[in-house]
Write a protein that binds this DNA or RNA. Sequence first.
DNA 1: TATTGTTATACTCTATAACTATA
DNA 2: TATAGTTATAGAGTATAACAATA
Lengths: 145, 145
Amino acid sequence: MATTRTDPLTFEVVQLIGSVVARYHEEYERAAAEHSLTGAQARLLGLLSVEPLPMRRIARKLKCEPSNVTGIVDRLEARGLVERRPDPDDRRVKLAAPTASGLATAKLLRGSLDFAREPLAELSDDERRTLRDLLRRMLGDDAEL
Amino acid sequence: MATTRTDPLTFEVVQLIGSVVARYHEEYERAAAEHSLTGAQARLLGLLSVEPLPMRRIARKLKCEPSNVTGIVDRLEARGLVERRPDPDDRRVKLAAPTASGLATAKLLRGSLDFAREPLAELSDDERRTLRDLLRRMLGDDAEL
DNA sequence: TATTGTTATACTCTATAACTATA
DNA sequence: TATAGTTATAGAGTATAACAATA
């Protein structure tokens, strides 16, 4: 187990990461707004575009309370981007799934998210590989939910 | 001007950055909550701990509307962490400044923010330097406000 | 009994627009 | 008239607690 550092170099890297986080967030919200979605709605729709999920699992993925998911799905459903389906195996659960329109929006959204690639344009392939490896090591075994 | 890429390597780096962002955010909110602050309150208090600022400038720094700053400062002021001072040079402006208690809280908060250093513990000094340089290049000339 | 999703409630953050007091 | 800060309003996200249906 390595030890946490407090030297100036580490401090600067932490600050740089803070800047990346701020930038990423701004651009993500902007991209969502372009499709008249809030950040939370865009994240939820992005999740569902991979696979339909029970409300409970969405809450775990989004790291929020299940009661919040009800509202976000309600608003996406009102716009025809998501629908609730029964789960044949357990009548308690409802599966949230994107509609065709929802899938299309999710795809457009991913396109708008090109933004995230833009700051990388400055780096060569070798540098990207290096960055990828360093980020992988930083994140370690990031458990899926 | 370099071009935006769409190759798998770039895609993976973008995803990794997304993970870093998610992790950073979680931990930031957790650290703020430890001091019974919301994320927005913690960010505002952190800003003021560097130097007192007019409400308007806080809004620009936080990239939100000035009307929101009123509420956040209200809540911090109600808890005795921040105070409003008149600006001698312009009687229209109010300077928000941390109290002694606010400064102490900001310092504790920065301490709790050690979290951000933790994922870096896996990297050697050389690797940190490399990461720093890559992030700097990614961010380019990030204009101050 | 335990779990799933929902409702009810309360608080915070957010943007918009209208207001006030200065400049 | 222009600017700084505020208020009023409305919408969205958040957590907590209590509830119905199902397991």
